[in-house]
Amino acid sequence: MFNRIQNLQRRSELLNRLRSFFYDRNFIEVETPLLSSEVIPELHIEPIAVSSDATRRTAFLQASPELHMKRLLAEGMPAIFQVTRSFRADELGRLHNPEFTLVEWYREGDDMQAGMNLLDELCQTLLGTPPARRIRYGEAFQELLEICPHTATCEQLATCAKRNAIAIPENMPTTDRNEWLNLLLTARIEPQLGLTAPDLLYDYPASQSALAKLAIRDDGIEVAERFELYWKGVELANGYHELTDAAELRERLTVVNQQRELAGRHALPMPESLLAAMQLGLPNSSGCALGFDRLAVLAIGAEKIGEVMAFSEENN
């Protein structure tokens, strides 16, 4: 049994300390639309569409505040943060609720290392964690599964999954390496992350760059400058050294929409307002999104997200 009222009180204290963390570092708190006609299309995130008979227009409850916060960054706000509700259809589980609270921030001038440092500092301050260990995505796969995630073929990844006695879904695609990488990550790597100190997983495969910049490392491998923080097996935050090239973003999102249609889902509208802003210039920056409900789960030592929310899908 958990004490719901006490948990909500502790959640409120945590929120207060979180805001102080950013105010102390001269971040400006912003508020951006929850409802917008544009989204940033993603292959595996379903925004919730809202339509109105009166206007005959469809808008989307935002899956993250990224689109509008980057427009503010482009307009010249160098350090911004936001605590906001975000919506993702069909995401429901121990650590998922279709409506949840996201903390998102951007700071001009930061590269990936600076972005990771800020996130590490935040965890140390709010959760009292020891300094985070930094481990490259490739190293984690080599260490735990003895396979290179950047070069292995689908067949090799499938063999690796079988060798590690992973329950493999029946309809795994034979050409999408990312699906296999996610299966291996979820089943055998994530549970090993952040056991004694938080782990910052970084240098993701270029194919999972999302909105991160690409870079070529000394070993000649192209990686995405993206990072995720894990603490006690919980994926807590995702950050990027932000992609600033509008043409490249348009290209990536066009591919995402093609993949969505191949998977039998609707293509989503392009974020033209963001693309236009990027054309005029998005400064070099790092940004990060952190699940506040999960932060509360970890701070309070709760079992699941519903225990730290006033009303979750379980009782709303």
Binding site: E42, H44, G93, R94, P169, N182, T186, E228
Partner: peptide
């Protein structure tokens, strides 16, 4: 039933 979804990845139902 454990819903697992790596940030940017496909949802898995363990």
């Amino acid at each position: 039933m454990n819903f697992r979804k790596p940030g940017k990845g496909n949802a898995l139902y363990e």
